[in-house]
Design a protein around this nucleic acid. Structure first.
Length: 269
DNA sequence: TCCCAGGCGATCT
DNA sequence: AGATCGCATGGG
């Protein structure tokens, strides 16, 4: 059993922040995360979240995965008081952290994300895992490139991928054959990484930005989706002051996204 | 029935 | 280079 202080760590918010789709609430105060071929449960205590894993696994995986050694309060401190909207968003989103997720899983997941709402993305990803992922006991792992290559377009369409099935299959083949080395991309600069990712069919700037941010922890990336565009249009006259947040705009983006989606009241979307 | 969802790519002007 | 449109699927 390991513990994460509640200070600036909130699984409920992270689960609903749109960056990950396999952190699920089992019951109030209890979450289950499947990632990196592992499954871990988080249980709420008075001042901390308890993880049901050995110390070695926590230190070797989850501490980094949850980005626990980064000071998010320092990012929030860059928000000027005069920006009332972002000040409120940052306060509301305190506890969100940018997880260090698997690049392959992020690539597939965010290809799927286009023109889908978050519950639909979750359903697709879950279907893929159950159908093509390794059985881990309590949950299924995210499928390997080889598994999705073997699924074929029809198999993928069974998981409600729709027209994205061809994109996912193409990506799976690129990675499986070695034509695309996702691990090697980690050594690229932000710009080169974005370029390499957008070369994948079905991956544009927005999806590539999400993969950069959530799969390669490029926290300078600032994915612009319909929610962000809406916020920027309604609260910033179409111009968001990115210059204030150089190097960590992705963190700000998460606060904006989470707050905007909450504000839209349709928390279901 | 219409509209929208963490867009992208092809096809126009 | 910018604007428009089709694309699968599900939910409100």
């Amino acid at each position: 059993m390991e513990f994460i202080p509640k200070q600036d760590f909130n699984p409920e918010k992270i689960a609903d922040s749109g960056q990950c789709f396999r952190l699920n609430q089992l019951e109030p105060g209890r979450f289950r995360l499947t990632a990196r071929k592992r499954c871990v449960e988080l249980a709420e205590r008075a001042d901390a979240w308890a993880l049901d894993c050995p110390a070695a696994e926590f230190d070797g995986l989850w501490r980094s995965y949850f980005d626990l050694d980064t000071d998010y309060a320092a990012f929030r401190a860059a928000v000027p008081e005069k920006d009332a909207y972002l000040t409120a968003a940052a306060k509301f989103g305190t506890g969100i952290r940018i997880l260090r997720q698997d690049p392959w899983e992020m690539l597939v997941t965010f290809i799927i994300s286009q023109r889908k709402n978050i519950p639909a993305i979750r359903a697709c990803v879950e279907a893929l895992c159950v159908r093509y992922g390794e059985n881990l006991g309590r949950e299924y792992a995210f499928p390997t490139p080889a598994a999705l290559s073997g699924a074929g377009e029809e198999g993928l369409r069974t998981c409600a991928l729709g027209y994205r099935a061809g994109y996912v299959l193409a990506a799976a083949r690129l990675v499986q054959t070695g034509a695309l080395d996702l691990e090697a991309l980690a050594s690229l600069g932000d710009g080169e990484l974005l370029e390499a990712l957008t070369a994948v069919p079905g991956v544009g700037v927005k999806v590539a930005s999400c993969v950069s941010l959530f799969g390669y922890h490029r926290i300078a990336a600032f994915p612009r989706d319909v929610w962000i565009n809406r916020v920027v249009h309604e609260h910033y006259r179409g111009r968001f002051p990115l210059y204030r947040y150089k190097g960590f705009a992705g963190v700000i983006q998460q606060y904006l996204f989470y707050y905007a989606r909450y504000e839209g009241k349709n928390t279901k979307n």
